[in-house]
Amino acid sequence: MKHESTDQTKWYCDKCQRELELAKVKVKYMEGNFEVDLMKCPSCNQVFIDETLALGKMKEVEEGLEDK
């Protein structure tokens, strides 16, 4: 589920005032546990999920797991 948003380079973490970095992030849903590469703040760990990812690939995986 690796995801690089088209405009994510422009975003930074407002809390830590740091640029986002691509990192391995754990995601969980129902019985599923994965590690995926997502943009996040290296300091506070806030993970950036844009609309395309949330309503596209992420939703697809959610639905796939729900039907397991």
Partner: peptide, 13 residues
């Protein structure tokens, strides 16, 4: 500007 949601949980650590 926009709103959206997901059910998947992101572990922020």
């Amino acid at each position: 500007k926009s709103v959206y949601s997901h059910r998947m949980e992101i572990v922020e650590e």
